[in-house]
Design a protein around this nucleic acid. Structure first.
Lengths: 203, 203
DNA sequence: CTATGTGAATTTATTCACAGCA
DNA sequence: TGCTGTGAATAAATTCACATAG
């Protein structure tokens, strides 16, 4: 394999492949790009091309060793070490996130939860003690470098600022607002209403 | 303007523009592609190109009339009529969605909520009576053609089947699972853990 | 003089098609 | 034979650059 810049689109697809492979695990040992493609409703050539950027995952004539492939993708995505994430905002959405079993699958652990509602602080959800927002500053010491923002819109930017100050390197933002951070910090925003807004166009 | 197939990417961006414009509304009457681009951190040429597919939104030397532009984008996205949506699954995530104020902004109304937990059925959240799942069949009669799936993973596919049967044309799916529907039905899936899974790569 | 709208140029991503390995 | 890995071909999206309108 020669050098190639890895397309962003490829990175976006790797978690999709990973999810599918985790699902197919324990069914077969090997899978061909064709079969995986059919399962995920994508093109087989796309899958081979994506993997080719990282080189030599498969065996010609046989296919890809599923377990090995999962390990490789996790390594590329930097998911082979467990990641600790902090949740800020334990409202309905935050509670849903805490209860969501899907994170473990990708190697995440929600290791801290914050809220500024005095009634909630000190309480426990899912064995996690809810801390007050000023304690965000302890994140660096606790080696928590990812965070999920699930606070009301008006508090989103100041929350982001506090997170950046606490050394957080990646943020999953659920507020319907562009948040501004230094560019060394990666933000992924999910604006639920905005996604819904695309639907009527297609129907 | 001559005929062009409209890129999917353009459609994906229109709600982003709309969100920004709604934010800027009441500040100025006009905005140039340059200023809007700076505000949204995109390229001005991108904005002009996107709008050009629909033709003649702006005034050379002046810019775009914000109110008019909002109206045009809503019309393209088919958001100028109010849309009713049904929510299936009133757990933490479902409750968060019900409480979320962002939907109104784009012209959505969550007009029905369903759950299969007998303790919840009949109860009210946000002035909305929670109905039992078999009542999904009433959606067609009630002219509800969009739905949000916020049920546990194992119930997602059967929920989707029931929705399709009830005449739903668009689905926003929060379960971490590929759901299969006839291709006249548009599905947008948001898998929260999968989005988070992209973050460690960048940090 | 400013800012749009749009062909043309460029960049990026996808798909094809096949040589070569197991 | 079956399937990978990858250059080459194609398609799609973005950006440039400028003629033109207000």
């Amino acid at each position: 394999m020669r050098y190639h810049r890895i397309p962003d689109e490829t990175i976006r697809r790797l978690p999709v492949y990973l999810r599918g492979l985790l699902f197919l695990l324990n069914q077969e040992q090997y899978i061909s790009s064709r079969n995986l493609a059919d399962f995920l409703s994508v093109r087989d050539s796309q899958i081979r091309k994506d993997f080719s950027y990282f080189g030599g995952f498969g065996t010609p004539g046989v296919g890809y060793d599923i377990r090995k492939l999962i390990r490789q993708i996790k390594k590329i995505l930097n998911l082979s070490v467990f990641h600790k994430a902090a949740l800020v905002g334990v409202g309905n959405l935050g509670s849903a996130i805490l209860a969501y079993p899907g994170f473990r699958m990708y190697g995440f652990e929600i290791a801290a939860a914050f809220d500024n509602n005095p009634k909630k602080i000190g309480g426990k959800i899912n064995n996690l003690r809810i801390e007050c927002v000023p304690f965000l500053r302890t994140l660096r010491r606790r080696k928590i470098s990812l965070a999920i923002i699930a606070v009301p819109r008006d508090a989103a930017q100041q929350t982001a600022d506090a997170l950046v100050k606490a050394g957080v390197k990646g943020i999953l933002n659920f507020s319907p607002l562009r948040i501004t951070v230094p560019k060394k910090v990666k933000v992924i925003t999910i604006d639920i209403a905005m996604e819904l807004a695309r639907l009527p166009y297609y129907i």
